[in-house]
Write a protein that binds this DNA or RNA. Structure first.
Lengths: 170, 170
DNA sequence: TATTGTTATACTCTATAACTATA
DNA sequence: TATAGTTATAGAGTATAACAATA
């Protein structure tokens, strides 16, 4: 479980052999996302704002689709986009195809910001993986990818699909 | 980056080969912690409350140590413990060793709750890993553990240490 | 009628700064 | 003086319910 640790007091290396798969995955996840969170905070971004910008790198979706992509209620998206718009990271535009819809897109300054963040975070991850043998690094990527593909399938979600905009909004 | 996806529209399996190590790790982390978050929410627990309970499974620390363990400011801990106490998940007790300190411990009902949650989440993780070959499951655990041990060392933190209480508070 | 988005409201989570009590 | 903890305050993030505009 999150934060759980063994009760005895032997060395880390020794205890680690007893780390369960669940504990290992959870702690690794906290390590990865905690690292991203700290690095993003240096640029004044929360993890949620970072996800928003990340999702918008190759999409210009309406609010409702953003809600689906981020797994949030549409009312939460309103505030999220409000705050990002106030900082000139995203912009809203009326859809020509649907008079009710509002399309959200990244500003140029957000693109610069997120590229810099991505480069820094890539270096962070490289540092975290530095101790691994090349074969283990490769295995980790392969296994992670396999899990994600299987999981996306079982959910009926295509992780990689970019929803095509209505022709009128191209 | 978080949420980044390839721009073309071929099949998931095909695209997946191009998922970078960083993207794979971030998406896997969101999948794991998102799963934990959803399962915890069924019991009315946020991820933060779950971490709090997890940390308290084998410790009865003062507030300040809790702040260190969770990486939060001590003022945040006050509210966190307040809300958990209101729900009778934790209890505060004066330290006999230090008149300023307040020791936090789990209630019996929280122990029941967190055990149930741990069992459910373990099943969730098993389902997520179901598609993997046994050798890959084993490799994943071994690699994750290796990363965590190395990282804990480089930070001078022992992930597994349980801070010994003052003798007067045993 | 159904859908898209916003608003009103309420709660959790988080930090900074100022404070009290004890060491 | 320094440390442990709380309080006051402010802001982000989230959901539910009610609403307006459009389909």
């Amino acid at each position: 479980m999150a934060g759980r640790s063994a009760s005895s007091a032997s060395s880390a290396a020794e205890e680690a052999r007893r780390l369960s798969t669940v504990d290992g995955l959870v702690q690794l996840s906290f390590l990865i996302l905690g690292t991203l969170e700290r690095r993003a905070a240096e640029h004044g971004l929360s993890l949620t704002q970072t996800r928003l910008l990340g999702v918008l790198r190759d999409r210009t979706p309406p609010m409702t689709e953003l809600a689906t992509l981020l797994g949030l209620d549409k009312s939460s998206i309103t505030g999220l986009v409000d705050r990002a718009e106030r900082r000139e990271l995203v912009q809203r535009a009326a859809s020509k195809a649907d008079g009710r819809a509002v399309l959200v897109s990244l500003t140029d300054s957000a693109r610069v910001l997120i590229s810099r963040l991505a480069a820094e975070f890539e270096a962070d991850v490289a540092a975290i993986l530095r101790g691994l043998r090349a074969s283990d690094r490769e295995a980790l990527t392969r296994i992670a990818t396999g899990i994600l593909v299987t999981h996306a399938r079982s959910d009926g979600i295509d992780l990689f699909a970019t929803t095509a905009p209505h022709p009128a909004d191209e």
